[in-house]
Design a protein around this nucleic acid. Sequence first.
DNA 1: TAAATCTATGTACTCAGTACATATATAATC
DNA 2: GATTATATATGTACTGAGTACATAGATTTA
Lengths: 212, 212
Amino acid sequence: MTDRPNRQTRKRLATRQSISDAATRLFLERGFEGVTIDEIAAAADVGRMTVFNHFPRKEDMFFDQDQEARDVVLDAIRSRDPEMAPVEKLRLLAHRLIAEDRSYIRFFDESRRFVETVAASEALKARARAIRDEVVRSMTEALATSFGRPASDPDAYLTASLLMATWTVAFIQAHDVYRSRSDPEPAKAAFLAIIDRGATGIKAAIAGTTYA
Amino acid sequence: MTDRPNRQTRKRLATRQSISDAATRLFLERGFEGVTIDEIAAAADVGRMTVFNHFPRKEDMFFDQDQEARDVVLDAIRSRDPEMAPVEKLRLLAHRLIAEDRSYIRFFDESRRFVETVAASEALKARARAIRDEVVRSMTEALATSFGRPASDPDAYLTASLLMATWTVAFIQAHDVYRSRSDPEPAKAAFLAIIDRGATGIKAAIAGTTYA
DNA sequence: TAAATCTATGTACTCAGTACATATATAATC
DNA sequence: GATTATATATGTACTGAGTACATAGATTTA
């Protein structure tokens, strides 16, 4: 199905990947602020400007894989289901993702280093927050349009914000548990407990609206 | 009561204020990215290093007044009241602040320019998000300790996050309404409608916990 | 008054990011 | 297949925020 891209594209993607790989490795080793663009360029054996060609911001090299995680959530919202309200659908999605041990909500040593690297850097935390904001906007739009409402509907915005707040707390809290116990199971349980609590609350918050 | 500070302190505060004033005026005129630190120093008639002395980050010059707003919320949480749960207390606080027309939730031309300046700058939006994160941490701690729980209690964290999400949506949505209507009254109504919805949801989310 | 401290400020630096030019590889067209 | 167009890699030179470090002068304290 998916045509193999032509040589130009293959080369471009290979260059991009080697920059991303070199950068991520260095960031995990020495921390985000402990690595310069010049060092990344040298490690990936490309010119400095090539780095900026592929990643306009330094932070983009670290958060280079998260599109898939966003799409899973957005797809769940977009595939409107007359049988089930979106909040419940996302709650069940969380349970399924945990059960299936999907990489972006998995608890293992590398994800711990990842989380710790973010926590140690103001710039990475800032970018993580910006990404969450952008996902809230996408969720708002997906919710509103899939119910035939204007894209900036306040109820959709509130719903999306509360969902994101819940998922964020669940993620951070679960990683805290994992850090102290080094066992994925209690972390998973903590994650789902918070998701369930949040879902209960959000349903109450939007009772009586289009999205209930 | 409050002793008049000594001359050294008075001079320091005066210098700080004149930098903050010059910076804010320039930011509102030309946008955050359109002003350099050198220009701010010149406008305030101080050396460049003096600016960094008082404001380690450029963004600090813009968000220089918001401590009061944070304290009002945190004080409400800290003054534990056996008669009323904290979520309800904050809901009523929101109504009171709107009724009293308090400056940090007021809708008038200058606040609109302020909000628009933030919206136009990635750096200012990033700092606003960081401040919200910090307030969530303070609220979590205030909630947890005022109920005699460990400072990082997950239920307190979820409560604080949902509260902040609600207040943020209310603020942004209300300013959207104000921007389109130029009338504070519908904006106030929009603000309180969202606060009330959020409060209902959060109460449901934390039913059965210490904080209900 | 002398010593200690605080505040303002200068110099010189690092590093992310931008503007602009250009060479080279690849793709598209005749 | 030669030619033209485009995409990618890369260099040079710059801007502007922020840091490290030194120091002068004002103010406070002993």
